[in-house]
Design a protein around this nucleic acid. Structure first.
Lengths: 110, 110
DNA sequence: TTACTTTATCGTATATTTGCGATATACAAT
DNA sequence: ATTGTATATCGCAAATATACGATAAAGTAA
């Protein structure tokens, strides 16, 4: 009863879904927002702002990093996180492509 | 140990995250792709194309409907699903807004 | 060295998601 | 009424995700 059928789909679907999954939690959206403002970029600063424990924030950062949406630059004991806008752009393009296709559908259905 | 802190975030973050979550599975991306091609729009037809059981597909459709991304029009014993492009557009705009903000960050970090 | 700061990881509990078969529902056709 | 077709829902099992405290790791400063 082989579980998790994600691999049974096309790579394009998988890649889009993976990206969406990385954004599928308000904490991670919030983190990206914080980083985009460029006032703060360190884990501790993010912890101060969010209603989550340090270990939880660290985990969310790890997931964003795994999805290649942010890059972490270690500087001594601290770590500065930046948004990987290039990866974002790639996914934004993919999404826009999907949306464009959807729009051609708008006329009517069935 | 109050669980699921999703509500602890802003409504904008939550709404974006909810949308992303609806797209966070390749099966649902595939379903949207199929619907966008407008060749087929019924549950049974989607089941024929995807490597999933009927009940599973039905559940994915339900989630897409709950996220307001598709609309189901019942026609006798069958049901025609269409993409709710208006909702999509709204979210695409929200995403684009986020992306735009991100891009201003590209120069450098830290 | 020792103490401090910052972040990552481990272990654990709980919640949610995913998937399926079986069954129910709803309508159509005979 | 019975049979057939299409879809939704229920119940369950397994997999993932979320959250936290405790602890480890890695560097800084005294």
């Amino acid at each position: 009863m082989a579980y998790s059928k994600r691999e049974a789909f096309g790579s394009k679907e998988q890649s889009l879904a993976t990206f969406a999954k990385a954004l599928a939690h308000p904490a991670r959206i919030a983190i990206l927002s914080i980083l985009s403002k460029r006032d703060e970029c360190m884990c501790g600063q993010i912890v101060d702002v969010l209603p989550l424990a340090q270990s939880t924030v660290s985990q969310h950062l790890k997931e964003l990093k795994a999805a290649d949406l942010i890059i972490g630059e270690t500087d001594g004991p601290r770590c500065c996180y930046c948004i990987n806008w290039k990866a974002f752009e790639k996914f934004h393009d993919e999404f826009t492509l999907l949306f464009t296709r959807l729009k051609t559908q708008q006329e009517k259905c069935c």
